[in-house]
Design a protein around this nucleic acid. Structure first.
Lengths: 148, 148
DNA sequence: TTCTTTGCAAATGCTTTGCACCCAG
DNA sequence: CTGGGTGCAAAGCATTTGCAAAGAA
């Protein structure tokens, strides 16, 4: 899928979601979606605000928070709490489900996929008779020191 | 281990930690540790503050935050971010390592242990040549609806 | 005595809210 | 037209910081 096809795809998904939930299709909402999907990696509200302001969008933080909530609801965006200060986000459509390792000394972020997390999920669903919608898994560690 | 023995044990651990790191052994620090270990389940700073105030302790939120940081450093307390609003804590010594399921409809919290998380950890350590200190794993879900 | 730690209050910073105006339906 | 959505500024709230006083070493 090209970047352009991805943009079209998520625009359609968002559009259908808004329709279904009787929310209006404002240009702001689609502009924000586009900016998010133009960007790779993690971002926070301030990043996004600055990025859009520098491109001469007229947008407010309130609308960013607002729209991100909608995008979370239709699973086009994922939310993270790496630190307790602010929330981080990333686009989620078209990218593999993954979890994170945070290297606490450097702040570096590693993404990984491990199928065993799905088997744990299944076990828990059966064991507790629940339906699991999503999960968050973070490992915190450091690079191994070389032996001297 | 009785509750009393547990209290003695963690007091000793904390004491040694403070010594080793050249922090002072103030009565406030031990009072806070005691209150935390007297309590079962999760709590936040406000809970703890109210609880201690109602027992006529003279204590400030600043000191609570401060002391909790020390207790986190010596692994006597664990920190959680269930929501993005505030941090939750729980005592960690003498209780099995466990992870959490959050039932988003009721707010109910389930604790579980799954050894497979340790095998994932090992895999990652080898794969990325890192040392993992700890992790957080939360599953978010709902009780299964009965078929009607 | 010395200098860390304390309580208090003010400050900070992310997020939410109130409100008048705007515009999608 | 109408009511939901927007930008802006103010308010909220958890956490951090500054500072004078207290007290551990």
């Amino acid at each position: 899928m090209t970047q352009e096809e991805l943009q079209e795809k998520v625009k359609t998904i968002f559009s259908l979601y808004l329709e279904k939930n009787q929310h209006r299709k404002t240009p702001e909402r689609f502009a924000i979606l586009k900016e998010i999907y133009d960007f790779d990696g993690h971002f926070d509200i301030e990043n996004l605000y600055t990025k859009m302001k520098s491109q001469n969008y007229r947008v407010s933080r309130a609308t960013l928070y607002n729209t991100i909530d909608l995008l979370l609801s239709c699973n086009l965006v994922r939310k993270h709490q790496f630190s307790s200060t602010n929330s981080q986000f990333e686009k989620s459509y078209g990218s593999k489900q993954h979890d994170h390792i945070i290297l606490t000394d450097s702040g570096e972020l590693i993404e990984f996929c491990d199928p065993r997390i799905q088997t744990i999920k299944k076990t828990l669903e059966d064991l507790f008779d629940i339906e699991i919608e999503h999960h968050t898994l973070y490992f915190y560690g450091t690079r191994k020191k070389e032996k001297s």
